[in-house]
């Protein structure tokens, strides 16, 4: 089986190398190429590799040819791949150092705004900031009971090793992974349509994302508890819920609280971004001021966000350190 994977990796690697070379040539000469000859060529090269018993796939699966890196064909191939990737990347990303230095004058407005923020707007901006902090806090609080309940069902060591136990475990885990991998900003766009632009949409977006990521963090914490007390309480004839109550929950309360505070910290940061697409709070204000090129107001907002995040970071770090000692 490993050899089949090795061959597949070789075909992909050669396909990538040939594709990159064709891409680079296309930048210089104007021509088009069918996919089929490329695939055929990589197949032929892979076959040659099989014959040589020295290829990338074999190297990955540990069938080393026993030669030094620079002397082996596979080592040489890796080097070529890295160089090609870098050159292609440079072209695709349209890197141009000249623009970087020439365009510096355009930022004068922003920099001026940053160093002379408009304090006349302090009050409305502070209220927008409060909106952000509160919506992040409520998103965290609403997410907590859901994540708490789900995390028990998503902990390998608590779910029985039966059909239903495994099904629930896999279902919750998959759901959490899916909801977490969709960025909060996408959820915000959905909820802006659903409940209308404003902090409520932002809160819902952050809540969904928080439930998913707290479920994962919590369930991993449960999986890492000391199993000894669970065994001991089981041995006394306690029921499953009693076992959770006495052997599991006491071990997880303080790490759970620590994670929750950390999540609030993250949610305040995310709320700023979510605000950009209509999720309310200071992010929304930032987007509006930036659209109207009022750089002095933008400067004020950026300072407010930076100070808030700095304070939250410090406070939550301290609180978490204390909680871990409990």
């Amino acid at each position: 089986m490993k050899r089949i994977y090795a061959v597949l990796i070789d075909i992909l690697a050669f396909g990538y190398i040939l594709g990159s070379i064709v891409f680079l040539l296309q930048q210089i000469f104007d021509f088009s190429l069918q996919l089929l000859p490329l695939i055929l060529l990589s197949l032929i090269l892979t076959l040659i590799c099989l014959f040589l018993e020295d290829s990338l796939g074999l190297l990955i699966f540990g069938f080393s040819a026993g030669k030094k890196y620079w002397h082996s064909f596979s080592g040489w191939l890796i080097t070529v791949m890295l160089i090609l990737t870098f050159i292609c990347g440079w072209i695709i990303v349209e890197i141009n150092p000249l623009y970087f230095f020439e365009g510096i004058n355009n930022t004068r407005g922003i920099l001026q705004g940053l160093f002379s923020p408009n304090f006349q707007n302090l009050l409305p901006m502070l209220s927008a900031l409060a909106e952000t902090i509160y919506l992040a806090l409520l998103a965290t609080i609403f997410a907590l009971p859901f994540a708490f309940a789900f995390s028990f069902l998503a902990a390998r060591n608590l779910m029985p090793n039966t059909f239903w136990g495994n099904s629930i475990y896999i279902f919750i885990r998959t759901l959490a992974t899916f909801f977490r991998s969709v960025e909060a900003i996408i959820w915000a766009i959905i909820f802006c349509v659903w409940v209308g632009i404003g902090p409520f949409a932002g809160m819902l977006a952050l809540m969904i994302h928080s439930i998913a990521s707290l479920t994962k963090l919590f369930s991993e914490q449960i999986e890492n508890i000391d199993q000894g007390p669970v065994e001991a309480i089981t041995g006394t004839g306690a029921s499953t819920l009693q076992i959770w109550l006495y052997a599991v929950i006491p071990q997880i309360v303080s790490p759970f609280l620590a994670f929750t505070i950390y999540r609030w910290d993250i949610n305040v940061r995310m709320a700023t971004i979510v605000g950009f697409v209509g999720g309310g709070g200071i992010g929304l204000a930032l987007q509006q001021e930036q659209q109207m090129l009022r750089w002095h107001n933008v400067g004020l907002i950026i300072w407010l966000i930076a100070i808030t995040i700095w304070i939250m970071d410090m406070v939550s770090g301290k609180v978490r350190a204390r909680l871990m000692e409990l």
Binding site: G228, E231, G237, P250, Q251
Partner: peptide, 18 residues
């Protein structure tokens, strides 16, 4: 009911430490 009648102690004590 049976487990209730049977106590057990362990090498690692198996107490909830906090």
């Amino acid at each position: 009911g049976i487990r209730r009648q049977i106590g057990m102690i362990y090498q690692q004590f198996n107490l909830v430490k906090n």
